[in-house]
Simulated scan of single mutants.
Amino acid sequence: MKSGTSCWKSFANPGSWMARRLRTILVVIPAHNEERYILDCLEAVDRSKLNLQAVCPGIAVHTMVVLDTCTDSTAQRASDFAATHPGYFAHHVNFGNVGATRAFGIAQGLNRLPGPHGTSETWIACTDADTRVPENWLKEFAVAYLGGADAVTGTVEPDRVELAPQLYRQWRERYVLAPHHPHIHGANLGVSATAYLQVGGFKTLAAHEDVELVARLRRRGYRVVATDQLHAVTSGRLEGRLKSGFADYLSALAGETGTCADNSLDTIRAG
Score class of each variant (00 low, 15 high):
H92P: 00
H92M: 06
H92K: 13
V93R: 08
V93Q: 07
V93F: 05
V93T: 15
N94T: 11
N94W: 02
N94Q: 13
N94I: 00
N94V: 04
N94M: 05
F95Y: 15
F95H: 15
F95V: 10
G96V: 11
N97A: 10
N97F: 09
N97C: 15
G99E: 10
G99W: 04
G99L: 11
A100T: 11
A100R: 15
A100V: 01
A100N: 10
A100F: 05
A100L: 15
T101D: 09
R102S: 05
R102A: 08
R102C: 10
A103D: 08
A103R: 13
F104S: 10
F104R: 12
F104N: 02
G105C: 09
G105S: 07
G105N: 07
I106C: 03
A107N: 09
A107H: 12
A107E: 15
Q108R: 15
Q108W: 03
Q108G: 02
Q108L: 05
Q108C: 12
Q108A: 14
G109E: 08
G109D: 08
G109C: 07
G109N: 03
L110V: 08
L110K: 01
L110H: 02
L110G: 00
N111E: 14
N111A: 15
N111P: 00
N111F: 05
R112D: 01
R112V: 00
L113R: 05
L113E: 06
L113V: 04
L113T: 02
L113N: 02
P114H: 10
P114E: 13
G115E: 11
G115T: 12
P116I: 05
P116S: 07
H117E: 05
H117R: 13
H117K: 09
H117Q: 12
G118S: 10
G118L: 01
G118R: 08
G118I: 06
T119K: 05
S120T: 07
S120K: 14
S120Y: 03
S120E: 15
E121R: 14
E121S: 14
E121V: 03
E121T: 15
E121H: 13
T122N: 07
T122F: 00
T122A: 07
T122R: 03
W123F: 14
W123I: 11
W123P: 00
W123M: 15
W123V: 12
W123R: 08
W123H: 07
